[in-house]
Design a binder for these strands. Structure first.
Lengths: 332, 332
DNA sequence: CTGTTAGCGCCTTCAT
DNA sequence: ATGAAGGCGCTAACAG
C-alpha cells in the first residue's frame, strides 16, 4: 500500500499524488480523483520515507525535568495537544535533573532528527544546546533569558505574580510576611525570592531578608522551613511559598503545630498545580498557566520553523493570583 | 555525514559499516577501524533511513487515559525508561477517555509505524485494536483479560490487594467497613468492589452491599460518597476506597464533619500515588507498583517482537499494602 | 569475511 | 499541469 498504488488507481503519476498530498499545484479535477483513490485505499504516506527525502521529521523534542513532578504533566499535555494538532509528534525526554540523562535526551533528539526542541528544564547545559544550535535546530526555553538565532524564550513575569500575592496579603491586613524559598541553585527560585523582597519594599513594608526561609520546592522542605519559622518571634501572620508543594508542606507543619489556616496564619502557594484546589483548606496560589506556556512554546518553535529570518521570538506569560481559602484577614 | 563517509575513512564498504553497527559478522580488526572512524566523525545512523529499509521503526506506542491523572506519570516514566534503555522511543497518546482521541492516537501510531503498542487505558475500543492486530502489531493491555496472538496482558491481582487491606482493618478490630467504589462503567473498579465483598465474606464478616457507596475515582466523588455515608447509622469505623483520590476526598469529608482520622475513622486508599505519602494523615493504601507494571508491559512487547511464535504473554502484578497513619485500632 | 547492487517510499528537479 | 527519473541513507541479498 504505497503511493504507486494510489497513482495507478487515480490514473496519474506518483508525482501528482505527492503534489496533491502536499497541496501543491494540481488541477482541481485531478486532485479530486487522487483524493478519492486515497480515500478508497485508506492510504496514508509513509512518514519515514517522507522525512528521509525531505530532511524534516515532523517530530519536536520536549525535554522536561521530571514528569512525575506535578508541575510537568499539564505542560506535557499542553505541548502534545498543540503539536499533534499541527501534525507533529513529540519526543519526550526526562532529565531527572541529571546532566547525563540530559545528554542522552539530546542524543535521542538528534538521532530521531527532531525539527525543533523545547527545553523546559530548570537549568541548562550549554554544550548540549550548542549541539542543537550547530545543526540550526530551533529551540525554545522556559525563562532563560536570551533570544537568539533559532532560540526563542517563554518569559515568565514572576514579579507580577509575586506582587499580586503580596498585595493580596497586605490588603488583608498582614504586615509580617514570611517567604519560603526554593533551592538557591534554581534561577527561577532566586527570582521569586527577590521578587518578594522587591514587592515588599515597593509597598513600603520592611522586606527583611531574614523573613526568607529556605525550602527545596518539595513538601518536606516546606514542612521543615515552616517548622523553623515557628522557632522565631514574632511569628509571621502570613507565609508565601515559592511553589505549591512547599506550601503544602507548610500547611502540614502549621497543622502539626496546632494552628489553623487561615485563621491563625495565611498561606499562599505558587504554580497552582492540580492538587492546590484540593488541599485542606484549598490553597490560595499564583497560577502559572502551563497549558498556555506549552502552547506558546510550541508556537515559538513553529514560527522559527516557518521563518527564513532565523531570529527566535519571545512571549511573556503572566501568572494570575487565584484566591481560595488558605488566606484570610490578619487577626492582629 | 553519512555511512559512506565512515566507509571511506575506514577504508571499507558501506555494508561493512552497517554490519559493524548492527553487530553482525565482521573481522575484529576491521570492526575496530570502523568504530574508530565512527568515533572520529561523531557519526550516528539516520533512523529514518534505517526504518525505511528494515520496516521497523524502533518506536513503541503508549496509550494512556490522561497524563495529568496522578496514576499515569509514573507509568509513563517507567515505560519510557524501559524503552529508551533498549533503544526504543515512545510515542505517547492521551485519550482523555474519549474514543475519538483514542482513534486519533491509533492513527498516529500507524502513521509512525510503531513496532508495538501498550494500551494502558481503562477501557478499549475493539475496532481500533483490530486495526493494530490486522497489521500484526504486538499489543499489551493493562488487565483486560485475554492473551492472544500478538496480545499480551498485565494482570493485576486486585483481590489480593483488597484482601490485604480488609485483613489489616479486621486485625485492627474494625468490623463495620464501608467501601467507596469507582465508576461502575470501569471494569477495574467493579473488580475492586466485588473483591471487597468477597474478602469480607471469606472472613465471615457480613459484606453488606449497602456498605458500598459510589464514587468516581476523583476527589469530589470521594468527598460526596463519604458525606452520604455520614447520613447513615451506625457509622462505619473504617472506610476502604477504590483509589487514592477517592480516599483523599473521604479524608476531607471526615475532617469537615469534625471527626478525626484515624482516631474516629480509619481510611485506606488504593494505588499509592505519590501524594498518598503527604496527605494529612499520610494515607495507608494498597500500592500498585506502576514502575513494575510499565516495565513488564514493555518486556511483554519486546518478547512478542523477538519471538516467532506469535502468542502474547501474561504477567501478574501483586499490589502490596502500605501501612501509614490513616489507620488505627477501632475504638469500639 | 567483505563488496556490489538493488531497492525501502517518497519528493523534487527537469522536461514536456 | 503533469510525468520520468534520480536520490535521501541505509540494509539485505548475492557474489566473490
Amino acid at each position: 500500500m504505497d503511493i504507486r498504488e494510489v497513482a495507478k488507481r487515480a490514473g496519474v503519476s506518483t508525482a501528482t499524488v505527492s503534489r496533491t498530498i502536499n497541496n501543491l499545484k494540481v488541477r482541481p479535477g485531478t486532485a479530486r480523483r487522487v483524493r478519492q483513490a486515497i480515500e478508497e485505499l485508506k492510504y496514508f504516506p509513509n512518514t519515514q520515507a517522507r522525512s528521509l527525502v525531505s530532511g524534516r521529521s515532523r517530530i519536536v523534542g520536549l525535554i522536561v525535568s521530571d514528569i512525575t513532578n506535578p508541575f510537568f504533566p499539564e505542560l506535557v499535555k499542553g505541548f502534545e495537544d498543540a503539536a499533534t494538532q499541527k501534525g507533529y509528534e513529540v519526543l519526550l525526554s526526562n532529565t531527572e535533573y541529571d546532566s547525563t540523562r540530559m545528554a542522552n535526551g539530546v542524543r535521542r533528539m538528534l538521532e530521531r532528527k527532531v525539527d525543533a526542541v523545547a527545553i523546559m528544564t530548570s537549568e541548562m547545559d550549554a554544550s548540549l544546546t550548542q549541539q542543537l544550535a550547530h545543526r540550526k535546530i530551533p529551540m525554545v526555553f522556559l525563562d532563560v533569558g536570551t533570544v537568539d538565532n533559532h532560540i526563542s524564550n517563554i518569559k515568565i513575569d514572576y514579579s507580577s505574580g509575586i506582587s499580586q500575592a503580596v498585595e493580596h496579603l497586605l490588603e488583608l491586613g498582614h504586615r509580617r510576611l514570611a517567604f519560603i524559598s526554593g533551592p538557591s541553585d534554581l534561577a527561577s527560585a532566586r527570582i521569586r525570592s527577590s521578587a518578594f523582597l522587591d514587592a515588599m519594599r515597593e509597598r513600603g513594608v520592611i522586606g527583611d531578608p531574614s523573613w526568607i526561609e529556605a525550602g527545596n520546592h518539595r513538601i518536606d522542605g516546606g514542612f521543615h522551613a515552616m517548622s523553623r519559622i515557628f522557632e522565631r518571634r514574632p511569628l509571621p501572620t502570613a507565609v508565601l511559598s515559592s511553589n505549591d508543594l512547599t506550601a503544602i508542606g507548610a500547611l502540614r507543619a502549621i497543622r502539626r503545630h496546632g494552628l489553623h489556616v487561615p485563621d491563625d496564619i495565611s498561606v499562599v502557594g505558587f504554580d497552582d498545580i492540580a492538587l492546590a484546589e484540593f488541599t485542606e483548606p484549598p490553597l490560595t496560589t499564583v497560577r502559572l498557566p502551563r497549558q498556555e506556556i506549552a502552547g506558546k512554546a510550541f508556537d515559538a518553535l513553529l514560527t522559527s520553523l516557518g521563518d527564513t529570518s532565523r531570529m527566535g521570538v519571545e512571549y511573556t506569560i503572566s501568572p494570575q493570583l487565584v484566591v481560595r481559602e488558605s488566606t484570610a484577614k490578619a487577626r492582629e
